[in-house]
Amino acid sequence: MNVKHFIEDKLLIFEVNEEIDHHTSERIRKRADYEIERFMPKKVIFDFKKVNFMDSAGIGLIIGRYKLTNSFGGELELVNVSNKLRRVFEMSGILKIIPITQNFSNEKTG
């Protein structure tokens, strides 16, 4: 996972670049929590552009990070979610509280 910090905006971007399942989500979760806890961001963005597989472990991962970010008063957003991944998220209903933004690019600011 690639992590980008934007100090002035208190923005944290996680670019996940592997399949998300029970096996990989534990490592992703540890890294994400470490960054969120020390940086206490106003906003956390999960970028799924390079994720070509996700099962229900991804739902648990996002709900957990949503709660943690919220506990510091921050927001969480999902970007570049393919239809394949969206169908998994939709099962759980979490998209009612966590927004998705498509065609997101942080190239110019990064």
Binding site: D55, A57, G64
Partner: peptide, 8 residues
């Protein structure tokens, strides 16, 4: 507790 969502 293990962050399972019960959606399997």
């Amino acid at each position: 507790n293990l962050e399972r969502s019960g959606m399997g």
